[in-house]
Design a protein around this nucleic acid. Structure first.
Lengths: 160, 160
DNA sequence: CAAAATTATATTGCGCGCAATTAAATTGTT
DNA sequence: AACAATTTAATTGCGCGCAATATAATTTTG
């Protein structure tokens, strides 16, 4: 009886430890993502952009004109997320959306002059993030690389 | 004229590089967080839990009875997120919510027997995540630590 | 070429995440 | 004791994130 109860207690302890440890990495990523979004907010508010909208604009600033599909592949987002988001960017006058004449399924997203103008502001402001995370470039790059690998591993284990 | 244009082009290149680099770490965290959520989904679906709900249950499994405020501090979430989430867990029969008689402002959240029973299932299933991320324990711990530090730095730069 | 399968986008519905507001209880101050 | 300030939750509104579905265009197959 006492033996049995000690056994149960130990099982509980092992289970607890397992759950707590298990939680740590995923939660660390989860909480850090939110911390990043919150850190960006005061910087992006003056530009009238949310953080996901800013990510989309980064893609567009780099590539000029891109089909929705390609934006989705860059950011790992689907049309359920992008369609309304792009509609808001269009309404804000930062982008245009036009059906591709060569393939009417596709919608080509293009930055407007107003959208391009934002790029300068974004660059000026976003050095602040670099300072916020303490700019040891090598360390940052190592961390980025690890996260990239981790994400690849998670995604590959999804398919298998 | 040509000099001026070369100058502009170089500014553009610097700006592009800056924006692209700037994007990398924050986006890596953002995308990895989503990848984690997606990896957890098929494991949590059978338990009827979302990933944030799972995080709340982890806190409750560890501590038994906790005020809403303390859950929020553990997970860095506010009542705007937690109130409806807890309502759903209550409706699912996994928790109860009772006003603290000693301080009627607080709501004490407690796991039910049904909620406690889920813990066993969770443990059984979630070893899968460990396998999905390739279980080098030291490396994981190092990454977790870096993310923790990064989050702390982001949060401290918020206040200052 | 016609039918079937695939591809690209949009829409709907639900659950976060968070800012802003509200309401109620407690604590602090005078 | 009375009033102000603080604390705790809940509510409202908006923008993701994503599954599921719908629609239309293209490609593939027979």
């Amino acid at each position: 009886m006492t033996v049995k109860r000690r056994g149960k207690a130990m099982e509980q302890a092992v289970l607890d430890k397992h759950l707590v440890l298990d939680r740590q990495l995923c939660f660390a990523v989860y909480a850090t993502a939110h911390a990043f979004t919150r850190a960006y907010k005061p910087l992006l508010d003056p530009l009238g952009l949310t953080y996901p909208q800013y990510l989309v604009m980064l893609v567009l600033w780099e590539k000029g004109e891109v089909p929705v599909k390609a934006i989705g592949q860059s950011l790992d987002l689907d049309s359920g997320t992008l369609s309304p988001l792009l509609k808001r960017l269009e309404q804000a006058g930062l982008i245009t959306r036009l059906r591709d004449v060569n393939d009417e399924r596709q919608v080509l997203v293009r930055v407007t002059a107003k959208g391009l103008a934002l790029k300068q502001q974004a660059a000026g402001v976003l050095g602040a993030i670099g300072k916020a995370i303490g700019c040891d470039s090598d360390e940052i790059d190592a961390l980025r690389q690890r996260l990239h690998d981790l994400r690849a591993q998670l995604q590959s284990s999804q398919d298998g």
